Computed example of a mutant assay.
Amino acid sequence: MSLREQKKLETRRTISHVATRLFIDRGFDQVTIADVAQAARVAKMTVTNHFSRKEDLVFDIRTDFVDWPTNLVRAAPSSPAVVAVRDGFLTALGERSAMLGFAELPFIRMIRQSETLSSALTEMHLERERVLVAALLDRKPEPEMLSRTAGAHLTSVLRLLFEDVWDWTWADVPPEELVSRVRKSAGLAFAQLEPAIGTL
Rank of each mutant, 00 (worst) to 15 (best):
V42S: 06
M99E: 12
M124N: 07
V83E: 10
L9K: 14
M145G: 02
R13W: 05
A134Y: 01
V173E: 06
L105S: 11
E129N: 08
L193T: 03
E104W: 04
I111V: 15
S180H: 11
D87I: 02
R112N: 15
E123Q: 11
R26G: 01
P106R: 10
D60M: 04
I108H: 08
A186F: 03
T63D: 12
S156A: 13
P174R: 10
I61F: 13
I61D: 15
S180G: 06
E194S: 09
A186C: 09
A43C: 04
T149M: 11
P143G: 08
F59E: 11
V173M: 13
Q6I: 05
R109M: 11
F65D: 08
E10G: 07
D56W: 09
A186I: 07
S97L: 07
D67P: 00
R112V: 02
T155M: 04
S2M: 03
A39Y: 04
Q113E: 15
Q192T: 06
L57E: 12
V18T: 14
I111Q: 14
M110W: 09
L105T: 11
G88T: 09
T155C: 13
Q38D: 13
T91D: 14
H17K: 14
P195M: 06
R13T: 10
V133A: 06
A120K: 14
S118F: 03
A84Q: 08
E115K: 13
L132K: 05
I61C: 07
S180W: 02
V83C: 03
E95F: 04
V131T: 14
T149Q: 07
E55F: 10
A135F: 03
A186W: 00
P175R: 14
Q30A: 14
D29N: 13
D35E: 07
V133P: 03
R12A: 12
T155L: 05
M1F: 01
A196M: 10
V66C: 06
L137I: 13
A19N: 10
